[in-house]
Simulated scan of single mutants.
Amino acid sequence: MTMDPRFAMVAGEASGDLLAGLLLDGLKSRWPALSAQGIGGPAMAQRGFEAWWPQHKLAVRGYVEVLPHLRELLAIRRALGDRLLAQRPEAFIGVDAPDFNFDLEIRLREAGVKTVHFVSPSFWAWRAKKVEKLRRAADEVLCIFPFEPELLAAQGVPATYVGHPIASVIPMAPDRAAARARLGLPAEGPVVALLPGSRRAEIRYLARRFFAAARQLQVARPQLHFVLPTLPALRAEVEAAARAEGLNPGPGGPLTVLEGQSHAALAACDVTLIASGTATLEAALFKRPMVIAYNMPWLSWQIMKGKKLQPWVGLPNILARDFVVPELLQDAATPDALARAVGRWLDHPAEVQALERQFTTLHEQLKRDTARLATDAIEKLLAR
C-alpha cells in the first residue's frame, strides 16, 4: 500500500455525493496524499475529487424513466471501466447506485481490482435478488444499518457496520429558531418543508400534488409557511409548478424556495411532506414528523410492487418495523389525503413528542464514527 493511493469512486445522486464526501474525509485523514477520480458531485469536489463525468448523468430513478437514458448510461459505464482498468486504482468504491455500480464492480473485481460497495442495497425490503449480484461485485460492503452485516454474512458477503454518516452530521437537538433565522423564515408560526425529490421525474410526478396539498393547508391555516429546497437546475420548473397550483413563491408569499439547503429546511420546519427515499431518514434524524409520499409511472409502480418484501417503504418505518409515520403511495397520494395527513401532525403535539423520542433513540443507534470505521475496513481490505 502506497502513501498516496488512488481510489476510484462513483456516487450516483445527491445523497450518495454526501456519503462519499464524508468517506473521503476519513480516507484523507489516513492518506493525506491520496487521489480520487470517477463520477461524483459537489461535496466530493470540495474534497479534491476529480469528476470525469458529472453526477447528474446518473440521477435517474425507476424502470420506465431510465429507458431514454439507458444508451448513454451504458456508454459511460463502459468508458469508465476501460479507463479504470488502464489505470488500476488501489480500490474502487461504489457509493449506492447499485444498478450502475454492480456491473462495473463485477468487471473490475474479475480483473483483479479490489472493490468496496458503500451502502448495501435494501435486499431485506425490496431487492432480494440483488444480494446474489452483490456477492459477485464486492470484496467488502460497508453497511449503514446495524442488522445488515449478519444478514449479508449468511449470504457469503463480507460486510462491516460503519454507522450512518448522516447521523454524525445532524445534531441530536436541531436548533429550529436558528435555522429559521438563517433562511429568513418566520420566527413564529408553523413551517412545513416540502421535499418532492431531487430528480426531474420526481418533480414531474410529485411536485404538483405537494403544491396542491400545500395550497389546501394554506387556505385552511393562513399562518402556515412552506419551504422547499431544490437544485438550481430545477428551480424554474419547481416555481412554475407552485404558481400553477396557486402557491406563489418569493418575498411576501407563503412559499420560500431554496437552492440546496435541505438540512436547513428540515431543521427549520415543524412537519415535512417528503418523497420516499434517503431524505426520509434525514428527516427522522432531525426529529421531524413527516408524511411520506411517492408517485411514479404506472408500469414502474407495478414492477416495484412485485419486488416489495415488507409492508413499509419509508426508511423510518422500515427501521421501526411499524407505521410510525404515514405513507401515501401512488393513487393514495392525492392532495386531499396529503393535506389531511400533514394537518394531523400539526394538530396533535403529543403524538409529535412521542415520535421525537422514538427518532432520538434511532439517532443514537445509527451514530458512529463512520469515516474512521469505513477507512479501517478499506485499509484491512487493501492489506489482504
Rank of each mutant, 00 (worst) to 15 (best):
L74M: 14
A154Y: 06
E364C: 12
H69K: 08
G12S: 12
K305M: 12
A265D: 07
L152K: 00
E105S: 14
Q353N: 11
K380R: 15
R199H: 04
G246T: 05
H225S: 10
D376T: 10
D17F: 07
R372H: 12
H363C: 10
P186V: 05
Q223C: 07
A201P: 06
R107N: 09
H117C: 11
V141A: 09
L206W: 05
V119Y: 05
A20D: 09
P98T: 00
V342R: 01
R204H: 14
R135H: 14
A267I: 04
L104Q: 05
G163D: 08
A59F: 07
G343W: 01
A91P: 01
E13V: 10
P349K: 02
G94K: 03
W345A: 01
M172Y: 06
K305I: 07
Q87I: 08
A268Q: 04
P54C: 10
E110W: 07
Q365M: 11
L382F: 03
L194M: 08
H263Q: 15
A283P: 07
T230I: 02
K308A: 14
M3P: 11
G246A: 01
W126I: 02
A59L: 09
C143F: 10
E202H: 02
K307N: 12
R136E: 15
E132S: 12
E364T: 13
A264N: 11
E282K: 08
R288Y: 01
Q358P: 06
F210D: 00
D99R: 00
F49P: 03
E282D: 14
L299M: 15
G184D: 09
A125Y: 02
L70N: 07
G250R: 06
M9R: 07
M3N: 14
W312C: 04
W52R: 15
N101K: 04
L206H: 13
P149L: 00
C269M: 00
T272L: 11
A339L: 00
F100W: 03
E327M: 06
A264I: 02
E237S: 13
L70D: 10
E188V: 12
R182Q: 12
L85S: 04
L266V: 02
D25C: 07
A33W: 06
P222C: 10
S122M: 11
A11Q: 04
S15C: 01
G112F: 06
G314C: 11
P316V: 06
P186K: 05
L299T: 11
G94D: 01
G184M: 05
R30P: 05
G197L: 01
H348L: 13
K380A: 15
A154F: 05
K307P: 04
P190H: 14
D139V: 07
L224V: 00
L234Q: 13
E245H: 05
A233E: 15
E65C: 01
A242Y: 04
Q46C: 10
P311Y: 02
R107S: 12
L18A: 13
L382T: 11
L355A: 08
T2C: 06
